[in-house]
Design a protein around this nucleic acid. Structure first.
Length: 276
DNA sequence: CTACCATCCTGGTTGC
DNA sequence: TGCAACCAGGATGGTA
């Protein structure tokens, strides 16, 4: 599922019901996801107050009283669902449950179990293994053309592959990489090192814009993504190129239409006429 | 440095 | 209709 907009959608669903509440009960229904769950997860979290629900790149960070932080990555198929009243029976692939003193139940469901959870002391935040090394947050003021060009450096890889590297810019995944390059008019095959100056400015703006548009739509629901209410996101209806191989390019009347190719083992969609 | 591959796991879609 | 192959939003580590 989740690239930055989907994770941000989940964060916005969790924050209002969790912030300020106390964790009355925490249950793990299996010992591991992608990695083993932190030892004593339930014991360590129970009784703490939730200070805030934050996001960094594709990670959710649940800040707890007593300087503890729960980190959650949704992998490919992770979902969080909020139940404000009595929750329904457990469903297949429900792996984690948080119940608050306010009577809210949060369940984490992840069929593929590529997601994972970590628990660490707030003092370790700057060096936390999953967070250290992440590039700039694309919706922050720190991200602009020069910052992107700096992150790309002298890389000789294709720009599409480069912006999927979380060290270059944090939070862009396969869908929004194709969409941003289309908006910026940059070929996904272009060498990353040649994206600088005005091109980098255009791409940084395109990344920011497409992510913001997707967040406003509640993310993209291709298969797994749901908002925490269970509703679908609907940005998938606004894709210009992703998943539209063979269709007409929405921005021009070129004959080939939208092309599809594989880069780094992942599908890329683009218009050869508009993107150079 | 780069490209490519395999890996974790399940489920939906496609094609025969 | 049945079944097998293939594909999927992520991230990492290994190889050549």
């Amino acid at each position: 599922m989740p690239e930055l907009p989907e994770v941000e959608t989940v964060r916005r669903g969790l924050a209002p019901v969790l912030e300020g509440a106390v964790l009355a009960k925490v249950t793990a229904f299996r010992p591991d996801l992608r990695f083993p769950l932190p030892p004593g997860l339930a014991t360590r979290m129970t009784g703490r107050t939730i200070i805030s629900v934050e996001r960094r790149a594709k990670y959710l960070l649940i800040r707890l009283s007593g300087d503890l932080i729960m980190l959650s990555h949704l992998g490919m198929s992770g979902r969080y669902r909020v139940y404000k009243d009595a929750p329904p029976p457990l469903e297949p692939h429900d792996h984690l449950e948080l119940v608050t003193d306010t009577g809210v139940t949060i369940r984490y469901n992840d069929p593929r179990r590529f997601g994972f959870v970590d628990l660490f002391d707030a003092a370790q935040l700057p060096t936390q293994k999953f967070l250290a090394g992440l590039g700039p947050e694309p919706l922050s003021n720190a991200f602009d053309g020069p910052a992107l060009a700096l992150g790309l450096g002298e890389r000789r890889s294709a720009i599409k592959v480069a912006i999927l590297d979380q060290r270059v810019v944090a939070g862009v995944g396969n869908i929004y990489a194709s969409e941003a390059l289309y908006r910026a008019g940059i070929s996904p095959k272009r060498l990353a090192r040649t994206v600088k100056g005005q091109r980098a400015v255009r791409l940084a703006e395109a990344i920011r814009d497409v992510l913001n548009d997707a967040i406003a739509a509640g993310g993209s629901s291709l298969r797994d993504h749901r908002q925490t209410s269970g509703e679908l996101g609907y940005f998938q209806h606004s894709f210009a190129v992703y998943g539209r191989g063979g269709e007409k390019c929405p921005g021009c009347d070129c004959e080939d239409g939208i092309r599809q190719m594989i880069q780094g083992g992942r599908s890329t969609f683009y218009c050869a006429k508009r993107q150079r």
